[in-house]
């Protein structure tokens, strides 16, 4: 399976991404990049303690990230299936999309019928986008075909909704596995669907390395088939500086056509406030006071 999709050398990938992290993004290009990051954000809350009130606050922030800055709205609000109905109520009439994780996120270790049923429920309650997890157990025991069939079925159920396929890269572990899983997913995705790094629920999440392997897979698949698949790194991207490094990787690997929210997303909760803090610094010329923007993941 792996040799079919080509191999990846981990040392070489680390060297490649180190160069992205070295790009110096200042002035106008920094502001442009950060505004783009805001518009590409899937503002996320995925906690056991999520409540309708918390989701409502998240949605207000999604529509208006900052009251004094003239900023774009974020791309989507991402919640658990049980919260979709509240998010839908808050976001109806706004351009912000409702995204829901499904398929027994994050482990995916539930019977298939329950996983697919969860997708149907989330859609029925008004989700515009579904973030599914792949069957890592099946992948690691060599049943790539089953992984692919499940993704294909979820894509079919999604209909006009956007599908994002979470590979959970930290559990696939090797870069060869990540490349193979990216292709397995892309081969059954529709133009405009996404592949996504992580759930954010394991010890390691999106890194520039795993991200690079996935966007190179997206590039190779696009050049071979003409189908543009989107990319969503998620988990672990907490600072504005990090987000710009990911965006640099996209600019220099996939090119300008992927610098849009329809082809690129950031899955993040605390990132938005750091981006706002940096934008405020660019606007005013000085960093706002430490209490100006919360660094807590659950404060909106």
């Amino acid at each position: 399976m792996k040799s079919r999709y080509g191999t990846v050398d981990a040392v070489g990938v680390s060297e490649r991404v180190a160069k992205f992290a070295m790009r110096s993004i200042k002035g106008v290009s920094k502001t442009w990049g950060l505004r783009k990051v805001v518009s590409m954000m899937d503002l996320t809350t995925l906690e056991g303690k999520d409540t309708p009130g918390k989701v409502a606050a998240l949605c207000r922030k999604a529509i208006t990230p900052h009251v004094e800055m003239d900023l774009p709205h974020v791309a989507a609000a991402c919640v658990y299936p049980a919260m979709v109905t509240y998010a839908r109520t808050c976001l109806t009439g706004s351009p912000v999309r409702v995204a829901s994780v499904a398929t027994a996120f994050p482990a995916g270790q539930s019977p298939w019928r329950l996983r697919i049923e969860e997708v149907r429920r989330a859609l029925a309650q008004g989700a515009d986008e579904i973030d599914m997890v792949i069957n890592r157990g099946a992948f690691l025991c060599g049943e790539g075909g089953r992984v692919q069939e499940e993704i294909a079925t979820v894509a079919e159920v999604c209909g006009s909704a956007t599908l994002k396929v979470i590979l959970e890269v930290s559990e696939l572990e090797t870069l060869d596995n990540i490349r193979a899983a990216s292709f397995l997913a892309m081969e059954v995705l529709r133009p405009g669907d996404f592949i996504k790094t992580s759930t954010g629920k394991t010890s390691s999440n999106a890194t520039l390395e795993t991200h690079q392997v996935m966007i190179e897979a997206i590039r190779d698949y696009f050049l071979a088939t003409g189908v543009p698949v989107g990319m969503k790194p998620a988990g672990g991207i907490r600072t504005a500086k990090q987000s710009l490094q990911f965006l640099v990787a996209v600019k220099e690997t996939l090119g300008d056509a992927w610098l849009v929210p329809t082809r690129y997303r950031f899955g993040a909760s605390s990132l938005l406030n750091d981006v706002l803090r940096q934008l405020e610094k660019e606007r005013v010329g000085a960093y706002p006071a430490s209490y100006g923007f919360s660094e807590s993941e659950s404060a909106y």
Binding site: R23, S29, L223, G255
Partner: peptide, 16 residues
Amino acid sequence: SPRELIFGGLWDYDPA
């Protein structure tokens, strides 16, 4: 061409 990547000036880096 629809299958080519675009490395244009959408996001230029400022001089650093």
